[in-house]
Design a protein around this nucleic acid. Structure first.
Lengths: 148, 148
DNA sequence: ATGAAAGTGAAAATCATTATCAATTAGCAG
DNA sequence: CTGCTAATTGATAATGATTTTCACTTTCAT
């Protein structure tokens, strides 16, 4: 169970309305950990709040992404996936992706080492390419234990 | 101008036919460096070989990807992009992606440093998660010089 | 050369996502 | 609390990338 209360105020502050659909979708993120697709979120929301349409799910996911409350990913299976940007994982989006079954492992081992590495790299790249870097992703592709 | 001749034999070996469309599409990769979308490849192929259909382009891109001759990427702009897997960049797919204009910079600075880092990480992750890692991607997202 | 299997083009089908639009609602002013 | 107005919504149509279908064509081992 993750904290999502903190972002309720964010809506008010940024001039967005805190509606029932938005609340319900945030609840889904609170109760389900990882990598949900729009369709999956729609189905989960639908259990408690039928009546919320798929279009609204997409609109809300887009809004939450723009607000920085969730992150949007693409693991190459033809649909976008979303993940709550909670404090603990903030900015740390490193995944193992099984190219056979699509399983995704979100690892957070070796964080200090990676943090150091990416921070350094970001500085060097920002300078050389005049890029303002906001985030990064590291994906390892391969076969998971079950699929080898 | 990159070498693609080496893979002609690969077709024979794996039981695929070396057809005119496939040859033409490989030629496009030889003459154009980076990050082409299916549509772009179709248009480029079309200049020399009208008559080759879009479906064939997609089928060929899928085949070449499965054969390991090209890599398929997703930079979040809603279409897949492909890049020749030539020796020099083999396994090194690190990009700067501008989230405003979609520009992609393929950097290959700091390669030794990154190589060392990712190799180590791959070993540790493989072991811990019983993953057989085949490749990886590192993407930095931000604003390019023109878009800041 | 030739036949079977693989490959092809054109068009229809599919799938995720986005736009449209009339109807509803949140949140502020009074 | 009530009424207002812009933001938001649900249903549905539209879009755009990718896949599938199918009758016809080509490759290549024999």
């Amino acid at each position: 169970m993750r904290r999502v209360g903190w972002c309720y105020g964010k809506f008010r502050d940024e001039g967005f309305k805190l509606t029932e659909p938005r609340r319900a979708i945030l609840d889904v993120f609170r109760q389900n950990s990882k990598h949900l697709s729009a369709e999956e979120i729609f189905l989960l929301v639908h259990r408690d709040s039928p009546g919320i349409g798929l279009a609204t799910v997409y609109r809300t996911l887009d809004l939450l992404t723009r607000m920085g409350i969730i992150f949007k990913f693409d693991f190459g299976d033809g649909r976008s996936r979303y993940e709550l940007a909670d404090e603990s994982t903030k900015g740390h989006h490193h995944h193992l992706v099984c190219t056979r079954c699509g399983r995704i492992i979100d690892y957070s081992d070796f964080m200090e080492k990676e943090e150091k590495f990416t921070k350094e790299l970001e500085e060097e790249l920002s300078q050389k390419y005049k890029f303002r870097i906001n985030s990064h992703q590291i994906h390892f592709y391969g076969l998971c234990e079950r699929c080898q």
